[in-house]
């Protein structure tokens, strides 16, 4: 079975359980690729975004959980041109996502009452290819996801099972012929230590997902 099929089946499975899922997700601002990123939205925050627009977290994520941050620091952390950053900040201030303070010697801003629009971010990986590399990717994303799981369309050997379980990752056996995802080892529930990057992931995934929903007939 190809990795494409496995990823698509996994995303469909999670979508059917209320998650907003995205296959082959590149974490913004990095070159880290996640096979399936799935987020479980929170109603109030999702509705707020439908009214006011989504938070431009590509620029604002350094502000999350950080208090006042100078514009220079945002430009440095995001890597975007200063003009673009200034334009986005001005718009975000207009939409009441941030407070802007034009103090000397340089302007600064802070995010207002920000709450990520998701209660969970689950990262799933196809375990059949380049497993070691995917474990490294997962390590690089530590603190910005709630659970991680590896999906295999076959039974795992004991050593790999122990390695993955030891890292707190879940192990899911996909039975292709039955369309069943069987949770063999439940994923450990982790604390979010990097709220900025967590927000970045969930805002991006939800933003893309919600516009698909608007295409429903009923």
């Amino acid at each position: 079975m190809s990795g494409n099929v496995l990823r698509a089946a996994c995303a469909a499975f999670l979508s059917g359980r209320g998650y907003a899922a995205r296959t082959d997700f590149i974490v913004p601002g990095t070159d880290i690729r996640v096979d399936v990123a799935a987020v479980l939205p929170r109603m109030r925050d999702l509705k707020m975004r439908l009214k006011r627009g989504f938070v431009p977290t590509g620029i604002l994520h350094p502000l999350i959980g950080a208090g006042w941050v100078t514009v220079t620091e945002i430009v440095r952390r995001t890597g975007y041109p200063a003009g673009h950053v200034a334009a986005v900040l001005e718009e975000a201030a207009g939409e009441r996502w941030i407070d802007l303070d034009f103090q000397e010697p340089e302007p600064r801003c802070r995010i207002r009452d920000y709450r990520p629009p998701a209660k969970e971010c689950l990262l799933a990986f196809d375990g059949t290819e380049r497993l070691a590399e995917k474990l490294e990717r997962l390590e690089a994303l530590a603190g910005c996801y709630s659970r991680a799981q590896f999906v295999f369309p076959y039974d795992l050997d004991e050593k790999t099972t122990e390695t993955l379980a030891g890292l707190g990752a879940g192990i899911v056996r996909y039975h292709r012929e039955h369309g069943v995802f069987q949770e063999l080892v439940p994923a450990e529930s982790l604390e979010i230590d990097d709220p900025g990057r967590f927000a970045l992931i969930v805002e991006y995934v939800l933003y893309e997902h919600i516009w698909i929903r608007t295409g429903e007939v009923l």
Partner: peptide
């Protein structure tokens, strides 16, 4: 012929937000 507010979004609009619960 299907124009108008979709049921999912109408359902969401129907949810009333109190200070501490919906």
């Amino acid at each position: 012929a299907g124009r108008g507010r979709k049921l999912r979004f109408s359902l969401w609009d129907t949810i009333r937000h109190d200070r501490s619960f919906d």
